[in-house]
């Protein structure tokens, strides 16, 4: 079977910066891939490339064996930058409905079938009641669930979730991971799930794709999350400590993921979350 996503000596550049240099890896059908790496490592850029928004400048990038093109309906996407206008009094159903055939010209119209599909998908992620609620009254967690449902609509074969855990508290993060895993297992969807913290993802993921320093390493947690590999990706000396089923990635005595989170809180572009 052809790989779902396959990079072959691919170089991805954006705004003159090389985000990935000569990267090669292949993601198999049905895999749940945790996409990790420090801020600016290129997680978002890679997903945009997979969507066909940013073709590689060298090498090849194939999705289901083809060069990706914008608007591919087999890919579900939850962007990291989620512009939510602060006072948006649009209810969940219309919000999702707008995206359903949003690329077509004309006046929006939801058929019975569309409506049914939206409601079913909302139910699958436990968000049925959000259909009638305006966005401005949803919590960060509820919005996230709505967006997750939206990414699942239309039965995609590949799901790109870019930092879907941002602005969720620990309990909701667990729920979100669990929901994604369950739905994707049931439907045989391949998932790329980017996150800051490895530990929450450990029970769900099949393999990790670790990005950093222009490189990408795909493999099992045991293969990738090791001192030599991460030292290369972080370009600094990294220690990996395993304790009680958790993995701590440390640099000079401090946890890089937590340090990252801290940086992230300040440089966050996500307008959708509430403080």
């Amino acid at each position: 079977m052809t790989a779902v996503v396959e990079l072959d000596h691919a170089t991805i550049k954006i705004g003159g910066r090389t985000v990935l240099a000569d990267a090669s890896f292949a993601i198999k059908h049905g895999e749940f891939i945790g996409v990790l790496g420090p801020n600016g490592a290129g997680k978002t850029t890679l997903m945009r490339s997979i969507l066909g928004l940013l073709p590689p400048s060298a090498g090849s990038l194939r999705v289901f064996g083809h060069t990706p093109r914008c608007g591919d309906r087999t890919i579900g996407y939850l962007p990291q930058l989620r512009t939510v206008l602060p006072d948006l009094r649009v209810r969940g159903l219309d919000f999702i409905g707008a995206s359903l055939h949003g690329e077509r010209w004309g006046v929006p119209h939801l058929s019975h079938h569309d409506r049914h599909m939206i409601e079913q998908t909302l139910a699958a992620v436990g968000a049925r009641e959000l259909a009638g609620r305006p966005l401005s009254q949803m919590s960060g967690g509820e919005r996230q669930r709505l967006l997750l449902a939206q990414a699942l609509i239309g039965n995609p074969k590949l799901l790109l979730l870019d930092e879907p855990l941002i602005s969720l508290d620990a309990r909701h993060q667990e729920v979100a991971i669990e929901v994604v895993r369950r739905v994707c297992r049931e439907r045989g969807i391949t998932v790329l799930f980017s996150a800051h913290e490895l530990n929450q993802l450990l029970p769900a993921i099949d393999r990790v794709l670790y990005l950093g320093n222009g490189q990408a390493v795909l493999g099992t947690v045991d293969e990738v999350v090791t001192a030599p590999v991460l030292s290369r990706l972080y370009r600094t000396e990294i220690e990996v400590i395993r304790a009680g089923g958790h993995i701590f990635v440390m640099s000079h005595g401090s946890d890089v993921e937590r340090a990252d989170d801290h940086v992230h809180e300040h440089g966050d572009h996500d307008h959708g979350h509430h403080h």
Binding site: L53, Y77, P79, Q80, R82, L88, F95, G102
Partner: peptide
């Protein structure tokens, strides 16, 4: 679509 979700709309072409 472009108003509500510009990032996604762009990805959908």
């Amino acid at each position: 679509f472009a108003t509500l979700q510009p990032e996604l709309a762009e990805a959908k072409g």
